[in-house]
Design a protein around this nucleic acid. Structure first.
Length: 619
RNA sequence: GCACCCUUAGCUCAGAUGGAUAGAGCAACAGCCUUCUAAGCUGUGGGUCGGUGGUUCGAAUCCACCAGGGUGCGCCA
């Protein structure tokens, strides 16, 4: 089942990608207010401690305060530099307060707690973001953190043995959103799909398609008779192969069978059938991906790679490097398989690169293991010049990550980093009851069924409402609910409300409103500034999520943003004078509209990362 | 046996390279609203962050050990 095979087996969290180390700090994002204030703090700090080591300065952060009573932002500058400066944090903090108070952005600064410096900004510094957001549009929040790092995100990579099912879906959405996120954060991203079309599974699939072919040409064989002839038995009984059988029949008539319409020698039909079946399945999968809104740049075929000799070549190279030997592995302790017997194997010295045991590259029949081909595939990716490779995998491949990491390390002389992002199983619930997937019967919940039931946008959003490596329950009823507990609805609704206000505004005030040029000084109240503060956090949210490789953070941010907006809206429910649109206050209305428009921009921007289409109105 | 992952409010989950009094939704409780700015609003209670020890000015976060749960462990992909 390809790399997503995993998705059926429960498996809790495994491996969290370590945040990448930054060789050098990328240029500050000019629209990130927090980054700007950090520069201000650093400049002040440099005055106080002229010889502060760069690595200490790098640890200085300016963060949103949890509690508004502490001001708008806080910095740990005094605490992190205390040791190097050989001064008490309180003393440095006091000096910082002196330097920072009354600056262009900062209204007041005060020392607090163990050495924090709390900053209260001038409201106009926050307000000034609105025209910036409106001018930049959805580019607001984009950053240069990635600094053009070439990064390859490989995801889905399901075996082409049938239509995509729900198990594949999470990896597809997480991988796609992660790629979008990295792109927004300034990485040079390639989205890739690895077609696992070279293994025994595909051969089994071809047999199954061949059975449909025999049926199509009217073979007298029964399924039982046929199955008895199939090595490993007849798998893949799904009806989706019937069309493949018919196509074969139309193209080849009875030429792929014996004269009495029985099973011909595999040499006659296996390759032909395999090719046609894989193509047909990939066409289905591509259509599934399209419906899910996933568009990958590159599809790499394991078969083609092997046929081109890539696997042999890389094994040879590793051999030349002395990283391959013939050896005998120890049986796993405590749980030795019944049929275990010591056997010399071709092994890769993955332990030299951090793996637990050395890993076999050849099966006993002389063919390559999946791992051997996968080394070749990763070598191919390395040769394409990426700095970072990310494999989005089913969680049961957790144990696989360390060996592929080892391989990439060996191939690239440690110049390319491989990261695994593991996606946990998704349990589908309907009416509170689990929806069972019965694959053996050939009928299971396909991705297409799911998309028809709840729609692409709800699927994508919901898949991102949990950390990738945490199990999740996907409640079909809740995903369609129109209440606050459904984040998809709640966020979409906020956007629709923004659009609704803007539509109404266009009627109330005909002509170009030029919101980017609006005077926004009248936005002074708490709920307005709270909302603007949230908008101010969008760039740093993108950055942090990208560095942590955690696209789900975007979903949580949007939920919080929506909550801030709904709160503002709700005030107008009780008190009509607090509504956005006041025909007798064109100037104030325009300021509020700028806020509303900026909110809509950021919501759209976030949804775009998630691959979710914003709605203009709730229907 | 070994490796890795997980354990946060009654439930489902957030929690930023270690930061201040650990947050949200649901549920519970108390009010409000019956609207077209439809598909609720406001507030309250609720916690030994699995346990113990350690590092630190400071730990849900890092380290060690322990308990409970999960996944993987040669020729599956």
């Amino acid at each position: 089942m390809g790399r997503n095979r995993a998705a059926h087996h429960p498996r809790p969290n495994n491996h969290r990608p370590a945040p990448p180390t930054r060789a050098n700090t990328p240029p500050m994002n000019p629209t990130d207010l927090y980054a700007r204030l950090r520069e201000t703090v650093l400049a002040a700090l440099a005055q106080i401690i002229p010889d502060l080591p760069a690595e200490i300065a790098a640890r200085v952060e300016v963060t949103p305060t949890r509690d508004q009573a502490h001001g708008d932002m806080a910095t740990n500058a005094a605490m992190v530099s205390a040791k190097a400066a050989r001064q008490a944090p309180a003393k440095i903090a006091a000096a910082l307060v002196q330097h920072l108070t009354g600056g262009p952005d900062i209204d007041t600064a005060e020392a607090a707690g163990p050495g924090f410096v709390n900053l209260r900004l001038r409201p106009k510094s926050f307000r000034a973001l609105l025209p910036q957001i409106l001018t930049n549009g959805e580019a607001y929040g984009a950053s240069t953190t990635g600094a053009g790092t070439k990064i390859n995100v490989e995801y889905v990579s399901a075996n082409p043995t049938g239509p995509m099912h729900i198990g594949h879906c999470r990896g597809a959405v997480v991988g796609d959103a992660l790629a979008n996120l990295l792109q927004k954060a300034g990485y040079d991203v390639t989205k890739e799909y690895y077609i696992n079309d070279a293994g025994a599974q595909v051969t089994a699939l071809a047999w199954a398609a061949y059975w449909r072919y025999l049926q199509a040409i009217g073979s007298p064989m029964t399924e039982t008779e046929f199955a008895a002839e199939v090595p490993g038995g007849l798998q893949y009984k799904g009806e989706y192969l019937i069309a493949v059988g018919q196509t074969l029949a139309a193209q080849y008539q009875a030429k792929l069978a014996t004269p009495d319409l029985g099973i011909a020698s595999p040499e006659v039909w296996l390759d032909i059938t395999k090719d046609l079946t894989i193509d047909a399945m990939m066409a289905e999968i591509r259509e599934d991906l399209r419906l899910l809104g996933v568009q990958q740049d590159i599809f790499s075929s394991e078969r083609k790679l092997v046929a081109a000799g890539a696997a042999d070549a890389i094994i040879e190279k590793l051999h030349a490097d002395g990283l391959i030997y013939e050896g005998v592995l120890e049986p796993p302790k405590g749980k030795t398989p019944d049929d275990w017997e010591p056997r010399p194997q071709t092994l890769f010295r993955s332990t030299e690169f951090g793996d637990d045991v050395d890993r076999p590259l050849r099966k006993s029949d002389g063919s390559n293991t999946y791992f051997a081909n996968d080394i070749a595939y990763h070598a191919d990716k390395v040769s394409r010049g990426y700095d970072v490779l990310i494999d989005v995998l089913g969680a049961d491949h957790g144990g696989y990550v360390s060996r592929i990491k080892a391989a990439v390390k060996a191939i690239s002389a440690d110049s390319v980093k491989l990261e695994g992002v593991l996606c946990q199983i998704v349990h589908i619930l309907k009416g509170g009851q689990p929806v069972k997937m019965s694959k053996r019967a050939g009928s299971y919940v396909t991705l297409r069924d799911l998309l028809e039931e709840v729609g692409k946008d709800a699927v994508r959003f919901t898949m991102l409402t949990r950390k990738a490596d945490a199990q999740m329950e996907f409640d079909l009823d809740q995903v369609l609910a129109t209440t606050r507990e459904n984040p998809v609805f709640y966020v979409q609704y906020a956007h629709a409300r923004c659009r609704s206000v803007l539509r109404a505004a266009a009627e109330m005030f005909p002509g170009d409103l030029d919101l980017a040029g609006a005077t926004v000084d009248t936005l002074k109240g708490d709920p307005e500034l709270t909302l603007i503060r949230r908008l101010a956090q969008w760039p740093r949210t993108v950055e942090a999520a990208a560095i942590a490789r955690e696209p789900h953070r975007i979903a949580f941010f949007l939920y919080d943003l929506a909550a801030d907006f709904h709160m503002l809206w709700n005030r107008g429910k009780d008190d009509a004078t607090l509504r956005f649109l006041q025909s007798d206050q064109p100037s104030e209305t325009r300021a509020r509209l700028a806020l509303v428009a900026a909110t809509a921009v950021v919501i759209r921007s976030g949804l775009a990362v998630m691959g979710v289409a914003p709605v203009e109105e709730m229907r």
